[in-house]
């Protein structure tokens, strides 16, 4: 007799023996536990999705570059000891298109009069019912997500002081402040170019090197492109 077959049969039989029914309390206890366990939003799970090494390296390099550029622009510029004033570089991240007509990059105090640059989606929906389509006022070339895109549905509020993404009534996240250069509001973003799922074709916003959040590509303002070339592109909201 074939010894491999013998072993297979033995193991088949051995594995077939044993308990095959679970005690009811296991499911009951699991049900009790999930009563207090919120579900993670899909975007948080997305972060653990495997990426191609080249993309990972590219994103990491771009993130470092963006941190350097934005960090440089966040440096105080109140004095220029030891020499004449120098023009502050425009925060461009090659190969990004440079913002035009930017004269004097500066961080705008969100509380300062006249500094409010905002884009808002004010939506309504029933609690727990994402079939309701958010309605509201989309300004500054932002767009609401298409109807039916429930898992991607978000309400977004962008100001100079923070970016607010509201997925559910109880799930509000705020990130900010953003860097403001002239009349352009910048959030650092990394673009994932996943193809297999439109919901995964997202933009991830970064702030000071820390993953902040994502926005859908549909929500990008004009001038922002959806490609890896735009890695490091900042959200641009022009009034």
């Amino acid at each position: 007799m074939n010894p491999d077959r013998d072993l297979d049969r033995l193991l088949d039989q051995w594995f077939a023996d044993g308990p095959i029914e679970v005690a009811d309390r296991v499911v009951v206890q699991a049900a009790d536990r999930i009563e207090h366990q919120p579900q993670r939003p899909a975007w948080r799970l997305l972060r653990r999705s495997p990426m191609r090494p080249a993309i990972t390296i590219g994103l990491a390099a771009a993130a470092v570059l963006v941190v350097a550029v934005v960090g440089y622009n966040l440096l105080p510029r109140s004095s220029s000891v030891g020499g004449p004033p120098t023009a502050t570089p425009v925060p461009t991240v090659s190969p990004l298109p440079s913002p035009t007509a930017v004269a004097s990059p500066a961080i705008v105090d969100p509380a300062a009069p006249g500094s409010d640059i905002s884009a808002a989606f004010l939506g309504t929906y029933s609690e727990g019912d994402w079939s309701a389509q958010p309605t509201g006022d989309a300004r500054y070339l932002w767009q609401l997500l298409p109807a039916g895109d429930k898992t991607c549905a978000e309400l977004v509020l962008v100001t100079t002081s923070c970016i607010v993404i509201n997925r559910m009534p109880t799930d509000i996240e705020q990130y900010g402040p953003a860097a403001v250069v002239g009349d352009v509001l910048y959030y650092r973003m990394i673009i994932h170019n996943f193809q297999e799922d439109p919901c995964l074709n997202k933009v991830i916003a970064w702030r000071l090197g820390v993953l902040a959040d994502r926005l859908t590509t549909q929500q990008l303002a004009s001038g922002c492109r959806n490609s890896l070339d735009d890695t490091g592109l900042l959200l641009r909201v022009s009034p």
Partner: peptide, 17 residues
């Protein structure tokens, strides 16, 4: 039983993924 219960809770938490 413990492992199954843990897995079921994790599955609930991550189901949207």
């Amino acid at each position: 039983e413990d492992a199954l219960q843990d897995a079921l809770v994790i599955a609930w938490r991550d189901l949207r993924g």
